[in-house]
Design a binder for these strands. Structure first.
Lengths: 247, 247
DNA sequence: TATAAAACATTACGTAACGTGTGATTCAAG
DNA sequence: CTTGAATCACACGTTACGTAATGTTTTATA
């Protein structure tokens, strides 16, 4: 028989927690002293371990109480439901992490918090790209957007970093002569990356490019393809023209 | 100027939430009617959007309040800290998911919740294998355990399922003649899998096997290598001997 | 303009899982 | 039997609101 303090020391659980578990009838001490002090036996200790295990698994105390009361409880199902929940939460965190990464990069580029970009990134990861791109875009089919999503999800953090780095390099040199060698190198690096990211799907790339060109001229700020703005696209085009004509 | 209800409809935020944000001085309406009704202007709307964005990113309202008050706030750092937190939480969930998977499999095998196994699995994923294996094991070096951890982490869910399935098949036939063809097939499947999982590291496999043999004879229930118990190991050994002698 | 209906303000209690006290009581040791 | 430590019950605080309950203001209709 242990006092509440001894049990606390033995298991690392605070006295207050044990107090609380008694209060909600989760773990009630098997007996008490004449003065009202709680006494826990081995069964109580076992049950506490079980509670701690289930708590670690992510169950609420209410669920734990019911599960342990029901001897006919179907653990298999409960556990599998928990796995599903964990899976979903992991998905959410993956989205969130990507959104935060994007926001971090955007701050790096702009030097400050650009809220309209932040809103856009969050929308992108909250509702998926279809809501951001879809409205009235005749160049991108549902299928194209599906593909984009897939490729986008497959991008590793390194891919994103390289992609952003390439764009940043161009933004830093946006005013150099499009006919120069450096301009060609920058544009080529960007195009190669785009080609790799979209797995050499020329059709999809073509559709995206057309969509981008149009978006830039009509849309508010063309943020959907952040951080490539109108100037950026114009630059790429000029480089292409300059070096195409030069040959 | 919007009333609280109009703002609520426009943004999807409940009136009660706006009420609360006013209460904690997070978003205070720019003016009020003579009767005391709140009136929000465009700046308020903007700030609300910012609050919602930051909330999505996982900041507390208290943090948001301070960040938005401080004009000299360093967003870059805050965001990166948040990324780090998300990363850690993801790690935790990965561990948890694996533990839950293990527990789910264990229920499948045993037909019921075996608590000592559950405790063991949780310990394994909470503190890492070194705490479960290390105590007085002269067969496994620190290095071996490092390797085991690495291989263990590399296992996909499919790997685990196949591994478990192989073990289950043996458990179901634990009493058949070790010299039979079926016994050889079962043992061979298991050995091939083990070989693949540990990337043909014969030395590590040998050390593990020795450790297992000894553990089974001394330890409480040989749970560390669950779900392979003493009988299981004996079976594999007998099959090996039977077919080695037979050749 | 009178009145009904809708919107709004304010107050307050509830949530989950305890942390952090407080004063009163009980236990173990001398 | 007297300390001092352990333990008791009680109660408030935490987050970000949901959910009433009740009274007041605004708006729409007659």
């Amino acid at each position: 028989m242990y006092s509440i303090g001894q049990l606390s020391k033995q298991t690392g659980v605070t006295v207050r927690t044990l107090d609380y578990y008694d209060e909600i009838n989760l773990i009630t001490p098997s007996s008490k002293t004449s003065g009202g002090h709680r006494l826990y036996d081995e069964d109580n200790v076992m049950k506490l371990q079980q509670v701690l295990a289930l708590k670690y698994m992510g169950f609420s105390l209410e669920q734990i109480k019911m599960s342990l009361r029901d001897s006919a409880n179907t653990w298999q199902q409960s556990i599998n439901e928990q796995i599903e929940m964990v899976h979903q939460e992991k998905e959410r965190l993956n989205m969130l992490e990507k959104a935060l990464q994007g926001i971090s990069y955007s701050i790096e580029f702009e030097g400050e918090m650009n809220w309209s970009i932040v809103f856009n990134i969050i929308q992108l990861f909250q509702k998926g790209p279809e809501h951001v791109f879809q409205p009235h875009d005749e160049h991108l089919s549902q299928e194209d957007i599906q593909k984009m999503m897939q490729f986008n999800n497959q991008m590793t953090e390194e891919d994103i970093e390289e992609w952003m780095s390439s764009i940043q390099a161009i933004q830093a040199n946006i005013d150099i002569d499009p006919a120069s060698t450096k301009a060609r190198e920058l544009a080529e690096r960007w195009m190669t990356l785009a080609d790799n990211i979209f797995d050499h799907d020329e059709e999809l790339l073509g559709n995206m490019w057309q969509s981008m060109e149009q978006k830039e001229s009509t849309d508010d700020k063309g943020i959907a393809f952040y951080p490539m703005d109108q100037k950026f696209i114009a630059f790429i085009k000029e480089v292409y023209i300059a070096h195409h004509e030069g040959e």
